[in-house]
Write a protein that binds this DNA or RNA. Structure first.
Lengths: 225, 225
DNA sequence: TTCTGTGAATATGTTCACAGCT
DNA sequence: AGCTGTGAACATATTCACAGAA
């Protein structure tokens, strides 16, 4: 059995990692406008954060700015991309080609820099064989074979809730350690496997909570502050 | 004993609010299995958190458990639902009926307790008039009228990135203060408007970061453990 | 006893404010 | 001068550990 010790300095804080993609997107927009240099203030505004946070975040990657000047856009794009591991191509498999899976397969931003949808997999014989976004939908029986053959390292689960845990177990068994889960279930996975969850109904419920606060409940008082 | 009249001091931490939907889902599963009472430990496992965190979270709502026994499932469902504002029905409009909008309209969990998709809106004449998930797709020109007529208080943006800010401005102008944004842009809104963002490519990039760490990148470098 | 509820301790994240480089 | 990078102060979140109710 392994020691439960973890590296003491995980390096970049989680909160920072979660914001790097935001900075990257803002920087890409600037690069397209041929902006060569940007200050922490301007980049922060474009990314929707404050400049102190941005500088602190970037300082975790190294000293890539120039005092009195700002950051070189292209250079910073490269550094953040490298930190996020986007200088290589990640093969992504989407399991479950219902409405959501289809949306994901067709989603442009998904296929963009660093990621490639390498496989679409479903259990429904009606769907298997279809061409979606230029890819042939393969049968769930082929799951393990496809993952190995295509070098898939990230799996997106867009299956019904009832199927998610089983698919998860199977992809973990063939060595996948990164899963993006859209099914509304809590997946149980071994240590070392990373699961990120996107849950539409949770987001709605959080909005409802705040909306209720603002409105003063179902009565919707006329004199809102 | 607290006065039941004014719910004034309810300072529930954001982190807690974000987890309440998780607890609620786990509790619903238990209610369906006719489980009457649950301990913090069991509920925590079902929700994928640890029990200390769960108890602390629930303590912000009040003292709804019984020492030595646990929590009454039905009662806790009610209390959390009420706190989240799910005892009323929220009318939701989905703007942008592409692949993603369609997926959302058909997503069962979306339509579940507390939420009702009240309108589907798109700019494409090809799509306007279609019936999707039992709803007629209306034209974007009708946006303001539909929102008012149906009492929409939460808007889901599933438009292309380029259209998101304009639609956002328009719905904010007619009084919407809760927006769930799927478009990969930073929306700018006035104070008091709540925007939650779901960004698929950001989630992927965060996964890639961790995956890279685990694998040591494409080179499979020295395993530092 | 069992299990909740909660202060205290710790860990993580954010903001301030200014030192230090260009 | 202008702007980054960063320690220190502050704020929020998590975990511990146990007092206290059933």
């Amino acid at each position: 059995m392994k020691s439960p010790s973890q590296p003491r300095d995980r390096g970049i804080p989680d909160a920072t990692v979660a914001r790097l993609p935001l900075y990257l997107r803002a920087l890409h927009g600037m690069a397209e406008k041929a902006i060569a240099t940007v200050s922490s203030e301007d980049l922060a505004v474009a990314a929707g954060v404050n400049s102190a946070k941005l500088r602190k975040d970037l300082s975790h990657l190294g000293s890539y700015g120039t005092r009195g000047v700002g950051y070189d856009v292209e250079y910073l794009v490269y550094q953040i991309s490298r930190e996020l591991g986007l200088t290589q191509d990640w093969a992504v498999a989407i399991v479950g080609v219902g409405n959501l899976g289809r949306a994901l397969a067709n989603y442009g931003g998904f296929v963009s820099r660093g990621f490639r949808v390498a496989a679409l997999i479903d259990a429904d014989p009606e769907v298997v064989g279809d061409d979606i976004a230029g890819l042939n939908v393969e049968h769930i029986d082929e799951l393990e074979a496809v993952i190995k053959r295509r070098g898939v390292s990230i799996v997106v689960l867009a299956t019904p809730a009832a199927a998610a845990q089983e698919v998860c177990d199977r992809v973990v068994a063939v060595g996948v350690t990164s899963i993006l889960n859209f099914a509304p279930v809590v997946l149980s996975v071994p240590d070392g496997v990373d699961v990120r969850k996107v849950d539409l109904s949770i987001e709605l419920q959080i909005l409802a909570f705040h909306e209720q606060r603002k409105a003063g409940g179902p009565l919707m008082a006329v004199d809102s502050q």
